[in-house]
Simulated assay, not measured.
Amino acid sequence: MKWLRNREIRKLLCIMLLITMAAVVITHAFLPIAAVAAGAGCLLLDILFLIFVRRQYRLLSALGDYLRRVNDGEYALELPDNEEGELSILKSEIYKVTVSLNERSEQLKRDKLQLADALSDISHQFKTPLTSMSVMTELLEDSQLDEDRRNEFTAQLQMQLKRLTWLTNALLKISRLDAEAVSFRSTPVPLSRLIDKAIDPIRISMELKEQTVSVQAGEGTLSCDENWTAEALTNILKNCTEHTPAGGELHIFASSNVLFTEIKVRDGGPGIDKADLPYLFERFYKGKNSADNSVGIGLAMAKAIVEAQGGTLGAKNALEGGAEFILRFPKK
């Protein structure tokens, strides 16, 4: 009877016995027969109270054991209870906390695995160009190296440095998006201006490949952060130019209705392999048709930017051929 070890219960039991004895003495002074009935009634109430206390103590003991097991990491435990009362409410709240702890624990495990994978991918992305740069640096130290080869290695070094700079900036931006440290300044932006701003950084590379872009934007506007949204759209366009052959054409369609504003970008490439579609926006994922110098982070960053502003970004194979990316922003 562990519950009798509780000091408060023992004190309460003593008070109840004193009340019982007082009731017997008082009733005996007036009517001896009534004293027997009063004593029996009080004892019955005492017994019923002790049964109730014993039951409640068992439930509290079970809750204590439950919490100890949860503290040991057994989050899969259940605590069913269909009864009413303050103790039942307490059990219900404890169960909710347990479920929440379990979800957080699983999320932490997933985050830990994702962090390990991300670190592995990042180290690989840096290791390849750094190794190449180290080799070219050693070659440049050769005094007998002819001028043409020296210029070639210097140009390759500059290209690798630009790639590392872009990768570093992209990773910093994604980390800020993950930490929700970016303050988006939403203003109405004309769709035509937003698209032109997104195209500007890739105009030269498109001209070198003799690619063209067809834009149908209309007079609508999009309420968004102009700089960040333009960067997201630039990353999508950059992906499209990489998969569109020389002399090909890109198509951009933008429209707005009472529910949402939509921007569609379609390239002139072979389309997206079905096996790549589920993973297209994952960081460092490189599909079967990816370019050799592709990092696999541009689309992931574009999706993070769009979703941080309440929008969605998806991809599919267009009926006309090629890959089609769809940005959709609901009206606020």
Results as ranks from 00 to 15, higher is better:
122 I>P: 04
195 I>E: 00
228 W>A: 10
173 K>M: 10
284 F>Q: 03
219 E>Y: 06
204 I>R: 13
162 K>T: 10
52 F>G: 09
35 A>Y: 15
284 F>T: 01
45 L>P: 03
216 Q>Y: 11
121 D>F: 00
239 N>W: 01
236 I>E: 01
211 Q>P: 10
60 L>N: 11
175 S>G: 08
176 R>S: 15
161 L>G: 14
308 A>K: 02
200 D>P: 09
23 A>Q: 05
219 E>V: 10
120 S>T: 09
121 D>Y: 00
55 R>A: 11
50 L>R: 09
39 G>F: 06
256 S>E: 10
88 S>L: 05
93 E>F: 15
244 T>I: 03
244 T>E: 05
84 E>W: 01
257 N>R: 02
125 Q>T: 00
71 N>S: 14
196 D>Y: 04
183 S>N: 09
310 G>R: 06
246 A>W: 08
3 W>P: 14
86 E>A: 13
81 D>R: 02
129 P>E: 15
240 C>D: 06
226 E>T: 02
51 I>R: 15
270 P>H: 14
14 C>Y: 14
325 F>E: 02
302 A>N: 06
78 E>D: 10
183 S>Y: 07
155 A>H: 09
39 G>R: 02
236 I>Y: 01
69 R>S: 06
139 L>G: 12
3 W>I: 12
49 F>S: 11
196 D>Q: 04
36 V>D: 09
189 V>I: 03
1 M>F: 10
199 I>K: 03
150 R>M: 10
295 V>L: 14
85 G>H: 03
197 K>T: 00
95 Y>I: 10
324 E>H: 01
150 R>L: 07
299 L>V: 05
47 I>E: 15
318 A>I: 11
89 I>T: 13
330 P>Q: 00
271 G>V: 06
140 L>Y: 05
84 E>T: 05
233 L>T: 05
99 V>A: 01
239 N>R: 02
294 S>V: 13
161 L>Y: 11
26 I>Y: 13
170 A>Y: 00
107 Q>S: 06
284 F>I: 04
249 E>Y: 11
184 F>I: 05
30 F>L: 07
266 R>S: 04
186 S>P: 14
153 F>W: 09
144 Q>F: 15
301 M>F: 05
2 K>D: 10
273 D>M: 02
329 F>V: 09
34 A>V: 11
261 T>W: 00
209 K>N: 08
321 G>K: 07
330 P>I: 01
71 N>K: 07
241 T>A: 05
49 F>Y: 13
86 E>V: 11
112 K>G: 12
167 L>D: 12
140 L>S: 08
149 R>S: 14
118 A>M: 15
13 L>N: 15
274 K>G: 14
19 I>A: 13
72 D>T: 03
29 A>L: 11
288 K>I: 12
76 A>P: 07
220 G>D: 01
21 M>R: 00
300 A>P: 12
284 F>L: 03
142 D>H: 02
27 T>E: 11
157 L>T: 12
233 L>R: 02
200 D>H: 04
204 I>C: 14
23 A>H: 02
278 P>W: 00
203 R>C: 07
111 D>W: 04
301 M>T: 08
131 T>E: 13
